[in-house]
């Protein structure tokens, strides 16, 4: 039951008014494939600090929807990460890698 004062001010009943304005930024940043943009043609399995950007804290490969890389380069990244893991440059399983 909205109060008389609310009705007087012509507001629809049940509209919640907050003290501080809600600023939900739902503007999605356009993701781009960094390999295409910077023209990187080969993912080197030896520089592990570059590959760290493509794995999460547990050492697992990040999906494309998060890194935004295109399919062609995601495959190259996954091959490179698996080679780095074979050479013990990257762990198979890790906790708090970063």
């Amino acid at each position: 039951m909205s109060t008389i004062q609310e009705e007087a001010s012509g507001k629809k009943s049940g509209e919640i008014r907050y003290l501080t304005p809600l600023d939900i930024d739902n503007s999605t940043v356009k993701k781009y494939c960094r390999f295409k943009k910077y023209g990187i043609k080969y993912v080197d399995y030896k520089d592990s600090d570059f590959l760290l950007q493509f794995i999460n804290e547990q050492g697992k490969l990040l999906p494309r929807r998060i890194t935004g890389t295109s399919l062609k380069y995601q495959r190259k990244v996954s091959v490179a990460v698996k080679r780095a893991r074979h050479l013990a440059l990257l762990p198979y399983v890790a906790d708090l890698l970063k």
Binding site: Y42, D44, Y45, R83, H86, L87, A88
Partner: peptide, 19 residues
């Protein structure tokens, strides 16, 4: 303890020179 042999294509050769 471990070894890995990789065939290098032209992009990889170019990358190795730059490296």
């Amino acid at each position: 303890m471990r070894y890995l042999t990789v065939k290098l294509d032209k992009h990889a050769v170019h990358w190795a020179e730059k490296r």
